[in-house]
Computed example of a mutant assay.
Amino acid sequence: MDFVDQGDHMTPTLSPKQSISAVWKEIHGSSNWETLLDPLHSNLRREILKYGEFVQATYDAFDFDPLSEFCGSCRYNRRKLFETLGLTKHGYKVRKYIYALSHVDVPDWLKRSCATWSKDSNWMGYVAVSRKEESQRIGRRDIMVAWRGTVSPSEWFKDLTTSLEHIDSTNVKVQEGFLSVYKSKDELTRFNKLSASEQVMQEVIKLVNFYRGKGEEVSLTVTGHSLGGALALLNAYEAATVIPDLFVSVISFGAPRVGNIAFKEKLNELGVKTLRVVVKQDIVPKLPGLMNKMLNKFHGLTGKLNWVYRHVGTQLKLDSFTSPYLKHESDLSGSHNLELYLHLIDGFLSKKSKYRWNARRDLALITITHLNTDDPKKTEHSLALDGAMERLHLILP
Results as ranks from 00 to 15, higher is better:
D168N: 09
I167Q: 02
A115D: 15
A146R: 08
Q175D: 04
W123I: 03
M124V: 14
S121H: 01
G149T: 02
E133Y: 13
L164H: 00
V145Q: 04
V145N: 05
K119H: 13
Q175L: 02
E134G: 06
K173N: 04
T162A: 08
I167M: 08
S152Y: 13
S121K: 03
S163Q: 14
W147L: 04
S152T: 12
Q175W: 00
V129N: 05
W123S: 05
S118L: 03
G125M: 02
R137W: 04
G125Q: 04
A146T: 04
K173W: 00
V181A: 07
L110D: 04
L160Q: 05
G139E: 08
T161W: 08
E155Y: 11
L160N: 06
K173L: 08
D120H: 14
V145C: 07
D159E: 14
K158P: 06
D120F: 13
N171I: 00
H166F: 03
V145M: 06
S135C: 03
S121W: 00
D168I: 01
Y126T: 03
V172W: 01
V181L: 12
F178P: 02
R148S: 02
S118F: 07
I138A: 05
R141D: 06
V172F: 01
K132G: 10
E133S: 13
N122M: 15
Q136P: 06
L160S: 08
T150L: 09
G125A: 04
K173S: 04
V129T: 08
V145T: 07
K119A: 13
D108K: 15
E133T: 12
L179K: 10
I138H: 07
